[in-house]
């Protein structure tokens, strides 16, 4: 493969050595993370099953109505009933739990990083290329070390989803904080705010619409990862699509795919408030 005079730089070997090293020495640590994630997703799925499909649908219709009004509420009602009717309810819940876990963790990790990047130029310079790599590296690639470190099933799926879905939250948070008008920051300082007061009373509240747009993007990216995550054994609608592709089952493919689209539209609509969009 390498016919040039340059000796091949063994980046690939380094990477696998690194993963081997980590697996050998930190498997306990990553195992614990995997268990934690697996447990959390299980709890979510159990809880969703417990409250019955009727209550689940009702809760989402109410949320949709309160955040976006009648149109979205109706869509949510018919969409979720359709998923139930098609027989994908259980898998949709698993997918929902996967998305929710990934997005929550993306926000928990990505938001503070974004705030830091918004405030510190140095940190922004360091993290920007890392975010670029996270977003542009084909998402399948994450799956390989993820399997080594987190085995198969839900946990590696969640981890790969987080890596792919987190960057927009971080980026948009950073952008939102940078965009806060200078005179407002100055006013906040002129009245004697501490750095924390400035952050929590001025910068974050003003960056909120931008941050929410970032989280919305993270949710959408997480949804786009469900099929990829199923490659390492993550259950849910993604697994149905994967099975449909390998078995060439058009019917299952369309039904499961449609269910994913319905979930995506509902999440997109209810994760953005009307008042944030109009701005």
């Amino acid at each position: 493969m390498n016919g040039s005079v340059l000796p091949k730089i063994p980046i690939g070997e380094w990477a696998s050595l690194l993963v081997q090293f980590i697996t050998a020495h930190f498997s306990g640590f990553f195992g614990a993370i995997a268990d934690g994630i697996g447990w959390f997703v299980d709890v979510l799925v159990t809880f969703f099953n417990l409250i019955t499909p009727f209550a689940f649908i009702l809760i989402f219709v109410v949320i949709a109505f309160r955040r976006r009004g009648w149109g979205v509420a109706l869509f949510t009602l018919f969409g979720l009933v359709l998923i139930y009717d098609l027989g994908y309810w259980e898998h949709a819940l698993q997918t929902f739990a996967l998305i929710l876990t990934s997005v929550v963790l993306s926000v928990v990790i990505g938001l503070p990083l974004g705030i830091l990047a918004g405030i510190s130029k140095t940190f922004r310079r360091i993290i920007t290329p890392i975010l670029d790599v996270m977003q542009t590296m084909p998402s399948f690639v994450y799956l390989i070390p993820a399997v080594f470190l987190f085995h198969t099933g839900m946990p590696p799926g969640v981890i790969a989803t987080i890596i792919f879905a987190m960057p927009p939250t971080t980026r948009m948070t950073s952008l939102g904080i940078q965009k806060v008008p200078r005179d407002l920051i100055e006013a906040s300082e002129a009245f004697g705010s501490t750095t924390a007061q400035k952050l929590f009373k001025v910068q974050i509240p003003l960056a909120r619409p931008t941050i929410m747009a970032g989280i919305n993007q993270s949710i959408m990216l997480a949804l786009s990862m469900v099929v990829v995550a199923s490659l390492v054994g993550a259950p849910g609608l993604g697994a149905d699509v994967y099975m449909a592709v390998t078995a060439l089952r058009t019917d299952v493919g369309v039904e499961a795919g449609l269910s994913i689209v319905i979930l995506a539209i509902i999440f997109d609509r209810i994760s953005r408030r009307a008042k944030d969009i109009s701005k």
Partner: peptide, 13 residues
Amino acid sequence: ISMVFQHFALSPH
């Protein structure tokens, strides 16, 4: 010392 700004610098929220 308190201060008043040219472009008001009020928090919109």
